[in-house]
């Protein structure tokens, strides 16, 4: 941990010195973010303080086939955002919902601009809240907290930024409950009929690689397009399928949005 802190401080210092010394010179070791890059969300590019972007879009997941047996699409609408803080830090987050599955993610990352690429690393917490009590016969509620340490690298092309992000998935907490609602089947259920469990796990359950493109679209609007390849024991969109496989399962998530 101490080593990581030292490395971070050295990098931070070198960046500040280089920026100060460069003053716009083409030979600078770092390249400040362009006006387009100031809006980007997935990119590791460090942007000006308090700048950032918010995208509204859709996610289209393909759930793991061994769990679903049939190709079941799981669409979701989502907001993604990132805002820069001092010292090359940024907060990033995500909100999404398809009614059955609701997610909220918030994290912090540190970024570093180089002439052609930018690099970043961070940690986020991811809350899943699933509820399908509105479907007759599926009286189920589920909550989950997962942490994602990640590293990001972006390729900074003239107008486009191409980003690759690698994440580990650390499951921390799960809670599932059945039979919460009263009156199902005309029965006034008693409290002891509710069953469920709470687990504090802290286990490495998988990981993901995300590839994304961000670029100008029209006037001040930019677009975000990406795909996540997840390899996980606990794919969040499949919470209601109660994964019982010991094996990690592959799932794909396409996402697209307009950066406002």
């Amino acid at each position: 941990m101490k080593q990581l802190l030292v490395i971070w401080l050295v990098l931070l210092l070198s960046v500040r010195v280089t920026v100060k010394g460069a003053e716009g010179a083409d030979t600078a070791l770092v390249k400040p973010a362009t006006e387009d890059e100031q809006h980007y969300i997935m990119a590791a590019t460090a942007v000006d303080w308090w700048r950032g972007g918010l995208s509204a879009g859709v996610v289209f997941s393909v759930l793991p086939q061994p769990l679903t047996e049939y190709p079941i699409p799981a669409p979701m609408i989502e907001l993604r955002g990132r805002f820069a803080l001092p010292l090359n830090l940024a907060i990033y987050g995500r909100l999404g919902s398809n009614i059955a599955t609701n997610i909220g993610q918030i994290g912090a990352m540190w970024t570093l601009n180089l002439p052609v690429v930018s690099l970043g690393g961070g940690l986020s917490g991811f809350i899943t809240y699933g509820n399908i009590t509105y479907i007759d016969g599926f009286n189920v509620v589920h909550e989950r907290l997962t942490f994602y340490p990640m590293a990001t690298a972006s390729l900074r092309l003239e107008k486009v930024t191409l980003t690759a992000r690698i994440e580990a998935e650390v499951l921390s907490y799960r809670r599932s409950r059945l039979g919460d609602a009263e009156g199902d089947n005309g029965n006034d259920r008693k409290n002891q009929d509710v069953i469920g469990y709470t687990r504090y796990d802290r286990q490495l359950t998988g990981g993901a690689i995300t590839l994304s493109i961000e670029q100008p679209f029209w006037k001040n609007t930019h677009i975000l397009l990406g795909v996540t390849f997840a390899y996980s024991r606990t794919p969040y969109q499949a919470w209601f399928l109660y994964n019982t496989f010991d094996d990690r399962l592959f799932s794909t998530e396409f996402f697209a949005g307009f950066i406002l």
């Binding site: 599926f138 009286n139 189920v140 059945l178 039979g179 259920r189 002891q192 009929d193 509710v194």
Partner: peptide
Amino acid sequence: APRFTAGLQSTL
């Protein structure tokens, strides 16, 4: 044979 998601349903 009810579905498990309805819970224990002890009374019924």
